[in-house]
């Protein structure tokens, strides 16, 4: 492969990693507050549909993007109600949310199949996009890609430097102690879930507004699950999430290009590459690192005490 192929490959890596990145960042936020939400796929696809419908009805992609966040959060709110108020098991609730979200989006979206909606197109950053190599990779993307990249330091700042973020992490590490210190556990977990749902909705919106401009059933196609896996892969750190999402997108784009160039390897084996690589990198980095940074109270509901 020469540079002529590598530049579009890297650009494609960023693009196909972006929806996963949004969802991964969202799930990091949720899990940092101590809540495991396996319903990312359900929130993503609902967001994708909401974005598509809004863009089609209003013609404003930016508005559609925000609405997608709202709807992602609304589906997330179901998880919050079931797990935070009714102390339901977080694993079942998340899986049920996926089943529900996929069903709902297919059900409501069926009449829209075969239609298109206005969305975001590629945007060249003035001057910067002339840089050979780097320009086309980094500075000729649509605005949502930049949004996702911007989200990474923002989330990091929120979790590390912001008082609310610190409280949210405290709630995820040791809810009893946090409660004793006067932090409302439920409030911060609500923030975590709604924020995560919103970002998952953004990820979905990327699929229906920027990656493609159309709607079909099951548009998310399992990307929510990849996001759940990448959270652990990233050791709950936003920076590593960016790396993981782009790496995953990159390997996916790479195997397609390998086929396009012409190879004798069976496509089933080529498609295994992204998954094999994820495992390999995870194993290697877990082996190297000392601790995994999982929030200590992840998946454990806080019971009301008398």
């Amino acid at each position: 492969m020469n540079t002529e192929l590598i530049v579009p490959l890297l650009a494609a890596a960023i693009q196909s990693g972006t929806p996963i990145l949004y969802a991964t960042l969202g799930e990091i936020l949720t899990e940092k507050s101590g809540v495991l939400n396996l319903g990312v796929e359900g929130m993503m696809i609902t967001g994708a549909l909401a974005a598509f419908v809004t863009a089609q009805a209003t013609g404003h992609p930016a508005l559609a993007f925000l609405v997608a966040g709202l709807f992602g959060a609304a589906i997330g709110a179901i998880h919050a109600i079931v797990c935070l108020w009714f102390l339901g098991n977080q694993v079942v609730s998340g899986l049920a949310l996926t089943i529900f979200g996929l069903g709902l989006a297919d059900y409501l979206g069926t009449p829209l199949i075969g239609q298109t909606a206005p969305g975001f197109n590629k945007l060249a950053v003035p001057l910067l996009h002339y840089i050979p190599g780097l320009g086309p990779i980094l500075f000729q993307q649509d605005i949502l890609v930049y949004g996702a990249i911007l989200m990474v330091p923002l989330l990091w700042l929120f979790l590390e430097k912001c008082r609310w973020g610190l409280n949210l992490r405290a709630v995820g590490e040791n809810p009893e102690a946090a409660a004793a210190a006067g932090i409302s556990v439920l409030r911060y977990r609500w923030i975590g879930i709604l924020g995560g749902g919103c970002l998952a909705g953004f990820g979905g919106a990327y699929l229906s507004l920027a990656y493609t401009h159309l709607w079909t059933n099951g548009l998310s196609a399992g990307r929510g699950w990849i996001a759940v896996a990448l959270v652990i892969f990233a050791f709950w750190r936003p920076g590593r999430a960016l790396l993981g999402a782009y790496l995953f997108g990159g390997v996916m784009a790479f195997q397609l290009r390998l086929q396009a160039v012409g190879t004798h390897l069976p496509s089933s084996l080529l498609l295994m590459l992204p998954y094999l690589l994820t495992v390999a990198v995870l194993v290697f980095s877990s082996w190297k690192s000392k601790q995994a940074d999982a929030p200590a109270a992840l998946g454990v509901n806080m019971e009301p005490n008398d």
Binding site: E4, T212, A221, A253, R257
Partner: peptide, 15 residues
């Protein structure tokens, strides 16, 4: 899977 199928088409365009 429109996103993957579009990506596959792009990989063909690249070559």
């Amino acid at each position: 899977d429109p996103a993957t199928e579009k990506e596959a088409a792009k990989s063909l365009l690249d070559v």
